[in-house]
């Protein structure tokens, strides 16, 4: 709670108050963004972004393509591949440079993701089809906030979690892929 002396008699706007408590900073809108043609606002850096819906992998691939050879870590758990494991040949057919991507296939996903995020070597970290506990997601969020990274979580169904800074729903139509915002943390 803010001290009355700090607020005083001045009429504060909601946005000013949010900035005062740092909420605006923790929200995605104030952060630098990585451009993404499928999501014109761009994806906020130092954030956890959840992408769901049919075409989420294609969304991720197109996003990687636009990031000019930034190293990518792609983490998967072979046990939880409800929609199959990633097919590197399919990525290559979409003109992706496979040397850009380090694949990690493990059942110890939590440990592997933590190592990858702590190393701060990968501007883009992708985890697909993984269910993490809220606390674990929060931990990952704190790690990714420490560098100019972006943690993309590809899920079949949207997490009911407050941790992702942005939750996107990808849809496939006759015009191609489109992404709409499901939820955004903080202002904006």
């Amino acid at each position: 709670m803010l001290a009355p002396a700090l607020v005083g008699n001045k009429k504060w706007t909601l946005e000013q108050l949010r900035q005062l408590v740092g909420s605006a900073d923790s929200a995605g809108s104030q952060r630098p963004r990585r451009s993404c043609s499928l999501y014109p606002e761009g994806l906020p850096l130092r954030s956890l972004v959840e992408v769901s819906g049919c075409g989420k992998t294609q969304f991720a691939v197109q996003f990687i393509q636009e990031q000019a050879s930034a190293p990518v870590a792609w983490i998967e758990d072979p046990r939880r591949a409800a929609q199959g494991s990633i097919n590197p040949f399919g990525l290559w057919q979409m003109n992706l440079d496979l040397q850009q991507i380090t694949f990690i296939e493990t059942m110890q996903v939590e440990w592997a993701t933590q190592q990858v995020l702590q190393s701060q070597l990968f501007p883009i970290v992708i985890c697909s089809e993984l269910l993490f506990h809220e606390k674990i997601l929060r931990k990952f969020q704190l790690f990714v906030e420490k560098y100019e990274g972006l943690f993309l979580l590809l899920s079949s169904e949207v997490h009911q979690s407050w941790v992702p800074a942005l939750q996107l729903q990808v849809q496939r139509s006759t015009h191609g892929l489109s992404a709409r915002t499901l939820r955004r943390r903080g202002v904006g």
Binding site: T57, P78, Q83, G84, I86, G90, Q93
Partner: peptide, 11 residues
């Protein structure tokens, strides 16, 4: 040359 393959394959 090859038709487009899916991005996800089952083992």
């Amino acid at each position: 040359f090859l038709p487009r393959r899916p991005l996800r394959l089952f083992k």
